[in-house]
Design a protein around this nucleic acid. Structure first.
Lengths: 197, 197
DNA sequence: CCATTATCGAGACGTAACGTCTAGAAATAG
DNA sequence: CTATTTCTAGACGTTACGTCTCGATAATGG
C-alpha cells in the first residue's frame, strides 16, 4: 500500500525550501533556545508558509532532528582497525568530535528532552538517531568478540549502555564534555580482563 | 538580610495546603503526563487558588521536584559496610528500589527534560537532587580509597559519571530498568584491578 | 495546450494556557 | 482591635498553538 509508489503529478516539493526550513530551525534554536522556538518563527525565518512546515514535519523537534543530520557530520567510524581498543578509540573520538560541532550539544539536549515529553517523537528519535549510534558501537564489540579480542563478561549491549550513558549524562546533567582523559579512562575500563575464565 | 529571620505576624502558611498541592501535582503527572500538567490543574485538584501555587513555587517542575521528595524515599545508603564492593552493591540496590516506586520514573524523566529547557530549574535540580546523589556515591568511593580498597585509576568523579550515566541513560533512552544482572556487571567492572601500579 | 493535481507563501481563525492582578475572607501577632 | 500575611476565587490581556482558506505556481497526462 504505502510503498515507494506514485511519482505522481502536480508540483514537486521544493528542496530549496526544505533546506531553508532546516537551516532556519537550527539557527533559531541556537539563538533563542528550543522552548522559544516556534513553527511560526521557523517559517518566517525561512520565508516559508506555516503550512509548508506542518505538511512535512509533525513537530518542531522533528525539524530539528533532520536539521542535525544536515548540519553535523553524523558519520561514526566502524571500520576494522585490527583491535578492539583501536576501534573503541576511533569511535570515542568521533563522538567527541560530533559534539564539538557548534550548536550540536544544545540540539541534542533539546531532542532528548522532547523525547521525554512526546512518546511519538521518542520513537522517531530512537529509530532515527539513538539506535544508529548504538548499532555502530555494538558492531565494534561484536567484531572484537569474533576476533577473540573482547574482554570477558562484556556484552555489546552493556558496553553500549555504559558508553552512551556516560556521554549523555555528561551532556544532560553536567557541563563537562568528553575529553581525552575520559576516552583514556573508558578504554582502560573496557579493556581490563578479570583473571577468571 | 534573607536569613532565617522574622517569625513574623500575619497568617501562617498552611502545611495542609502545601501537602495537597504536592500530592495533586504528583498524581496529575502520572495521570495526564508532565506536558499536560498545568498550574491551574494542580490548584484545582488541590482545592487551592492558583496564586497560592505561584507564591511558593516558580514552576510546575519545582512543585514536582518537591513532591518527589515527599512521595519517594530518597535516602541512599552510604553506611560503612567494610568493603567497597558491599557499599557499591547497597548503593545500587537503593537506586533500583527508588525507581521501583510507582510514578518515580516518569517524574524523573520529566524533571531531567525540564532541566534541559529551563536553565534556572536546571540549577535547582542539580543542587536539590543530582548533586546529593553524586555526593553519596563519591563518599563510598573515597572511603574505599582511604581503606586502600579502591581499584587503581578509578576516581570518584569518573565512577559517579559511569554509574549515574548508566542509570539515567536507561531511564531516558530505553525502557529497561536497572536489574540484578546490571548490578552484578557494574560491580564486576568497577572492582577489576589492572595489573600495573 | 489544457485540465488535473500537488505544493507553494500568506494569513485569518478559535482554543488553551500562560502569568499577573484584584478582591474579600481567614488567621495570627502586637 | 489593628496590622499583616496567606488563603480561595476568578477576571484579564497575551501568546502560540494547529487548522483552515485562499490564490498563485509548478509539474504531469492526455
Amino acid at each position: 500500500m504505502t510503498g515507494a509508489t506514485t511519482p505522481a503529478r502536480g508540483r514537486r516539493r521544493s528542496e530549496q525550501t526544505r533546506l531553508a526550513i532546516l537551516t532556519a530551525a537550527y539557527e533559531l534554536t541556537t539563538e533563542v533556545g528550543f522552548p522559544d522556538l516556534t513553527i511560526e518563527g521557523i517559517a518566517a525565518r525561512a520565508g516559508a508558509g506555516k503550512q509548508t512546515v506542518y505538511r512535512w514535519w509533525p513537530t518542531k523537534a522533528d525539524v530539528l532532528l533532520e536539521a542535525l543530520a544536515l548540519k553535523a557530520d553524523l558519520k561514526v567510524s566502524t571500520a576494522d582497525q585490527g583491535s578492539f581498543d583501536a576501534e573503541l578509540d576511533a569511535f570515542l573520538r568521533d563522538s567527541a568530535a560530533l559534539m564539538a560541532f557548534p550548536g550540536v550539544v544544545p540540539v541534542l539536549r533539546s531532542l532528548m528532552a522532547e523525547a521525554q515529553r512526546d512518546a511519538d517523537f521518542r520513537r522517531r528519535f530512537q529509530d532515527g538517531f539513538l539506535a544508529k549510534r548504538r548499532a555502530a558501537l555494538e558492531t565494534v564489540v561484536e567484531r572484537a568478540a569474533a576476533r577473540g579480542d573482547k574482554p570477558a563478561h562484556l556484552t555489546a549491549a552493556f558496553a553500549a549502555d555504559l558508553v552512551f550513558g556516560l556521554i549523555w549524562y555528561r551532556v544532560l546533567a553536567t557541563e563537562r564534555l568528553l575529553g581525552q582523559d575520559d576516552i583514556t579512562a573508558i578504554r582502560r575500563l573496557l579493556n581490563e580482563h578479570p583473571g577468571e575464565e
